Structure formats: structure tokens, C-alpha cells
Amino acid sequence: MQKTVTRLADGRELIYYDAAPPGTGAPADADPADADPAHGTGVRDARVRDAPDLRPLGPVATASEIRHDPLLGDAVAIASHRQERTYHPPADACPLCPSRGDRLTEIPAPDYEVAVFENRFPSLAGDTGRCEVVCYTADHDASFAGLTEERARLVLDAWTDRSAALARDPAVEQIYCFENRGREIGVTLGHPHGQIYAYPFTTPRTELMLRSLARHRERTGANLFDDLVAAERKDGSRVVLEGEHWTAFVPHAAHWPYEVHLHPLRRVPDLPSLGEEARAEFPRIYLDLLRRFDRIFGPGEPATPYISGWHQAPVRGWEERPVERGDFALHLQLFTIRRTSGKLKFLAGSESGMGVFINDVAPEAAAARLREVADA
């Protein structure tokens, strides 16, 4: 992997990730318009990485604030400046496409493979954390499921590199790499991309998992994550697919109509701790899952909206916890809010008001459907 760091006109950091060093993938005089960035054959002329951001941007002005709820004990980010963020622009005005001709975007280069930059409209900024955008491909009409295994591996490497870098910031406590896909989820930019949030606190979901982990250790002396994965593999009714180094299953108490948890078989706390064998197998497993999600509701259906995110151990604060960082298990959660063709799962009174989920699809039925739509 080749990493190139530069700056945008307003001082925000921009990082290009290439599968090979610039200059090795195509002749220096090749036309970037001839590139096929969605399939890993983009132009890697070193000069394009030096393309300056020519936009007349002023400094980024954010109003991010973290407020703590005294009743629930959780944190809420107040980010009123996000009301002005870009909202469903036409394809020819997409800020995540490469800059070409007079069309200047967030990415000054005329082509790229994977690019990561600081969000201009962050939910978290400064002392309240950091938000980054991860562009998987220069192809506006692509999707993660349509990437090659080589490109998916490059995205994994970018997630890993950013997780390690952000963990070195003493103000950061937890890192979440995730993708929202589909207008139904609330996505405002159609270009295939994800985000990375670096929180200055441990998120409520993780705090709940850590408490369950500690109770299970106290009660049984064993690791809860290990026992859960072993139980799902033994039962088998909710297992979707298995590799040599990964297992994907629908949780016994899935909250969402179609929800899959993907675990490496060797427990590690975060992405930087993943071994090479698991890294090498991940693209095939993950792309298979995403493609199955797009086939859940049958041919002719629009692309399945989903949320996919990596749950990683907090990077600090372990001195006060009853478990160790290595007890936490890195895993990916993938789910859709679509419960059947043309119908969404809305979070209404019980879910939104009391946090009690009601799932319309039995987890065993969801797993069976995901096995059924495997690519023959």
C-alpha cells in the first residue's frame, strides 16, 4: 500500500491510498479519464497526488459540542453547523468525485483509488473528536459490493491505518469505521463512501458490551465473545457463511430484520491487531455478504440500504475497567432497515421511546434467507 498525505485549501488533511506506488500502475502520460478506478486499474502517476486544491475555501467553522445526559449517562453531540452540509447534489456536482476540468471537488486529483479526508461538516471536531470521509472509489455509480477483492483489501488497509493514527490522539477514546448506504438510511451523498468517527468517549453500545463482558467473566471465568461465537458455530441455524478465519452469523437476539455479525475466529481488540491471514480472507467474505444483502428481496428490487460498522475496543481508559482491552472482540455489524419488499423497519414508540426493539423477522429465517441467496 502507498500512502500520500496532503492538505486541502482550508487546511484539512487529505490522504490518498494506492495499492501500488504512484508511477507503477500506468505510463506517466496516460489519460486519467481512461482509468478504471472501481476495478483497481486507476492511473498512479505520482503527479496527480500533487494536484493542489484550487477552491477559494475559507477556514472550517464548526460548532460541535458534547453534552452529557444526567439521566441516561450518555453523551450527545450538538453540531448545528451540519444543517448547511451538502444535500443530495446532482451527479455532476458530487463533492466526492475526482476534480476534472472546471469541476473542483473535495479531492483535487483527477483520479484516485481510495481517499480519506477530514469532513468539512463534522459531527465531532477539535476537542470533541474527529470525523473523516472514506471514498472507496472514484466511480460515482459504483458500490462497495461491486469492488474487486483487491480494492476491498485496500479499503481495509485504509481503515486500519486511520484507526492506528487516530488512536495516537490523546483526546480520542474510541474509533468507529462505518458506512451508511441508501437514501432510506439518510445518506445525502450517493457516491460510494463511508466515514470514521473518533469519539472522545466510549460509546453507549460499547459500554453495554463491556458490562456484559465483565458479568460473564465474573460468572463463568470465560470470555463472552468467545462463548457467543462458539455457540453460534455449534448451533449453526443462524450461521450465514464461514471461512477459514471468519464466521458470519445472525445474532440470536437480532435487533434488525436482517442483521449479521462478522467475527474473526482469532479474537483481537481492533483492526490494527488483525493477522495477515484474516486480512487476506476478509475481502472475499465481506463482498459475499454485501452481495447477498442486495439479493435478499429478489430480482428487480432496488439496492438494499444498510449500515455496516466495525466495533473496536476503546483505546484508553482501561485502568478503571474490570476487564482488559484484549478481552474485547473486534467484529463487524451489518444490517438493513428494510424488513420486506417496499417496507422499512421504523423505530417507533417502543424502540425510540424505550429502547426495546421488536423484530419482524425471526433471526433463523433471516439467516436461512441469506444462505439461500448465496451466489451459485
Rank of each mutant, 00 (worst) to 15 (best):
A230P: 05
A253P: 07
L262Q: 04
A230F: 00
P269K: 12
P264K: 10
G243A: 05
H252K: 06
E276Q: 11
F249W: 10
P299G: 07
A253D: 13
G243I: 13
R295A: 00
A303H: 06
P257E: 13
F297M: 09
P264Y: 15
D226Q: 11
E259I: 11
D227K: 15
I296W: 06
F249L: 12
G300W: 01
R295C: 03
R292I: 01
P257I: 15
R233Y: 02
E277V: 04
R284W: 06
D235T: 10
A278Q: 09
A303G: 07
G236W: 01
V240R: 07
A248Y: 07
K234Y: 00
L287D: 04
F293W: 02
E232R: 12
V268L: 09
P264M: 07
F297T: 01
E244T: 10
E277L: 09
E232W: 08
P272S: 11
D288Q: 03
S237V: 10
R266H: 13
T247M: 05
S237M: 07
I285A: 10
P283G: 07
D288E: 00
I285E: 03
Y286I: 00
E232V: 08
A231E: 14
D288R: 09
P302I: 11
E232H: 10
P283L: 06
V250A: 09
T304K: 15
R291W: 02
V268R: 12
E259A: 12
A253C: 08
G243C: 09
T247E: 03
D235Q: 08
H252Q: 12
E276N: 08
W256D: 10
H252E: 13
F293D: 00
V260I: 15
G275D: 15
E277N: 02
F249R: 09
H252V: 12
R279H: 04
F282I: 05
P272Q: 11
E259P: 13
L241S: 04
L271G: 08
V260C: 08
H263L: 15
T247K: 01
D226M: 10
R238I: 05
R266Y: 12
P283I: 05
F249E: 05
P269V: 15
G298N: 02
I296S: 09
I285H: 00
R284F: 05
F282E: 01
W256Y: 14
R291F: 03
A278I: 07
R284G: 10
P272F: 06
L271S: 07
P257N: 15
P299D: 02
E244P: 00
L274V: 13
